[in-house]
């Protein structure tokens, strides 16, 4: 579904991503783990069109989408839940969701809004509250719901558990599991490696801008050497 080949992205003279290749197949949950600064966010940004890669290609469902603008990619079927959620704090929950569904028709949007309110009951309670008043966990759910409003065929999430209390981290991973059951295709960047690998079909370990390892979630969980990346010694 998503095929990334030899992707290199630079900030000025600095390569944050070095010739990374990976793929996501339809219906899979793919984890992307690695330490801070490994280039995970850069990779998602390069796919989503926020950053322009210097080399390499990104293709989605057979179409080359390298360097396309984010609004085009969303229309092609890729949505990103950005790092730090970045919900619109002055807009209400409902308005945030509507923005998420800007590409679908009005009637469809109404159906999706209903759907999101059912999937995320906490949001229904705060429907007309400015999103800035939401707690961290609620805000993360809103960010995910907002991305789902565009009916993406591929949903990418950047550090969904970042800055959340342990209980809420559970909520997020339960949510990922739920989305997986719904048959959605997910590409998730996480620092919480163990938790992520548990829910992943496959995963890639990124390190210093390069893909250091790949395998099924179970395989990678077995490989204690990988945890040196995070814990050392």
């Amino acid at each position: 579904m998503l095929q990334i080949t030899g992707l290199t992205t630079r900030y000025g003279s600095i390569s944050a991503l070095r010739s990374a290749s990976l793929e996501v197949r339809s219906g899979e949950v793919v984890g992307l783990i690695g330490p801070n600064g490994a280039g995970k966010t850069t990779l998602l940004g390069s796919i989503a069109g926020l950053l322009s890669p210097a080399e390499g290609t990104v293709s989605f469902e057979g179409t080359d989408i390298t360097g396309a603008a984010p609004e085009k990619l969303l229309r092609a079927g890729i949505a990103l839940v950005p790092e730090h959620r970045r919900i619109f704090v002055d807009l209400t929950c409902e308005e945030n969701l509507k923005i998420g569904g800007i590409t679908v028709s009005k009637s469809e949007r109404a159906v999706l809004l209903e759907e999101m309110a059912d999937t995320f009951p906490v949001l229904r309670d705060k429907w007309t509250t400015p999103a800035g008043f939401l707690s961290g966990g609620e805000a993360q759910q809103l960010a995910i719901a907002r991305a789902l409003m565009s009916k993406p065929r591929l949903l990418m999430m950047d550090e969904p558990s970042l800055g959340l209390a342990p209980v809420l981290v559970d909520v997020v991973f339960d949510l990922i599991a739920t989305l997986k059951e719904q048959g959605r295709t997910l590409l998730v960047v996480e620092q919480n490696a163990t938790r992520m690998l548990e829910v992943s079909d496959r995963a890639y370990v990124l390190r210093s801008g390069e893909v250091a390892a790949e395998g099924t979630g179970a395989e990678l969980l077995e490989r204690s050497d990988l945890f040196d990346t995070f814990v050392g010694g």
Partner: peptide, 11 residues
Amino acid sequence: ADFDTARLMGV
């Protein structure tokens, strides 16, 4: 409010 995120949402 946030131009990049708005674009990510398809604006």
